[in-house]
Amino acid sequence: MFKKYLFILLCSTAFIVTSQSLKADERPEPGFQVQVEGQGKAIILIPGLMSDQRVWQQLVTELKADHQLHQINLAGFAGTKALASPLKLTQVTQQLAAYIQQHQLQKPVLIGHSMGAFLAFQLASSYPQLTGKVIAVDGLPYLAPVFSRDSNTSVAQMLPQAKMMQQYYQQMTAAQLAESTKQGIAVQVSSTEHATLITEMAGQSDPTTVGAVIAELLTTDLRDEVHKIQQPVLLLGAGGALPSDAMRPAVQALYQQQINTIPQAKLDFNWQARHFIMWDQPEWLLAQITDFIKE
């Protein structure tokens, strides 16, 4: 059951920036690549686990006339070359901060989906002076409570499960990873077209990278860090895959608990959209994002 629901809140993205103070041979491998489109206020778009910039295509089309969109693709996901050593999200966060500084982006808006939302929370809480508003698309500061259904779930409790999951994925082939993704596709998206694309991106991902990132997500709790975020935060939840409407209050409370310490944060749910809100309810998502950016 744990594996079946693992993909509800996971899904992925990479530029290659490092500290100028390090010598070339000391710099860590770049954890991401970037494609830039449009002109105007900078927005950084971070996809979820095993995804790439294709998840943002419609949003980019709508926003690029007035915004400069920095689309991230993480190493090891959806065809982007994996690193020699397992990808570490904490290192990606440091590299994203360096990217913002090197390109002189003025408090860019951070929009992340699922795992990408986790990265946005980590970046905004670690480097609050560098970042602008945060929009989390069905992603949280701590993943584990989504599966345990308990906000009191601790990192210590998740350590054995995380190790098991990492080993499980390390033994997979790319084809098996795609098949595993396909089995849980009903909670991710409604349309057959987008289900096919999600499966395709999974089949182009590196299983070892996927396992390492899942383990990191299950054992990294940012709830005690997000109070440092200085800019407004919008958390958008997807409730379309819930088996019963009676579950809505509990799910909403679980999400709300994760952002309670952020000074300026609000939560909104779409009860029709599944995990990939950008495909299930694109007009609603666009309206939420544009209104929030303008506020």
Rank of each mutant, 00 (worst) to 15 (best):
L197G: 03
A238Q: 08
A238P: 00
L234H: 01
L234E: 00
L236C: 10
H227L: 03
Q204R: 11
E216C: 09
H227P: 01
P207T: 04
S205F: 10
L242T: 09
T199Q: 11
E225D: 15
S190I: 14
S244V: 10
E193K: 12
H194R: 13
L235H: 02
A175S: 15
V187G: 15
S180M: 13
Q188R: 13
D245C: 08
V210P: 04
E225F: 13
A215M: 06
V213W: 03
Y169V: 09
L197E: 12
E216W: 10
I229A: 05
Q183G: 08
G211N: 01
A195T: 09
I229N: 02
L234T: 04
Q188L: 15
T181E: 06
L242E: 10
T196N: 15
Q230V: 11
A186E: 15
I214L: 13
I185Q: 01
A215I: 07
R223N: 08
A246Y: 04
P243I: 07
A238F: 11
T209F: 06
I198V: 15
S180I: 05
K182S: 09
A241N: 13
L197H: 08
L222R: 03
A202Q: 06
T173L: 11
V226M: 12
S205P: 05
T196W: 10
G184Y: 05
P243Q: 02
A246C: 03
T209M: 07
K182E: 04
L217F: 07
Q204F: 04
T209E: 06
G237H: 01
S180K: 13
Y169I: 12
T173C: 08
I198A: 07
K182C: 01
A195F: 05
I229C: 03
A246L: 11
K182N: 07
I214F: 11
E193D: 15
G184I: 09
S191E: 04
Q171Y: 04
P207W: 00
K228H: 15
V187A: 14
L236I: 15
G237I: 05
P243K: 00
E179C: 09
G203E: 04
L235Y: 02
A202F: 00
P243R: 00
L197D: 06
A186D: 14
A174D: 08
K228P: 03
S190L: 09
A175I: 13
E200I: 09
L234I: 06
A215V: 12
P232A: 01
Q188T: 13
P232F: 00
A186V: 13
Q183L: 14
S244N: 14
G239A: 11
I185E: 01
H227G: 09
M201R: 14
A238S: 12
A186G: 00
D221C: 10
S190W: 01
P243Y: 00
Q183S: 11
L217T: 05
S180F: 08
D224T: 06
V213D: 00
A195N: 03
E179Q: 15
Q188C: 14
D206Q: 11
Q188A: 14
L235K: 01
A175H: 10
S244K: 10
L234D: 00
Q171F: 07
E225L: 14
Q204W: 05
L234Q: 06
K228C: 07
R223I: 05
S205I: 08
L242M: 12
K182D: 04
E225Q: 15
G211C: 04
Q231V: 02
T173Q: 08
T192M: 03
T196K: 15
E200H: 13
G203D: 05
I185H: 03
T220D: 03
T208K: 15
G239C: 10
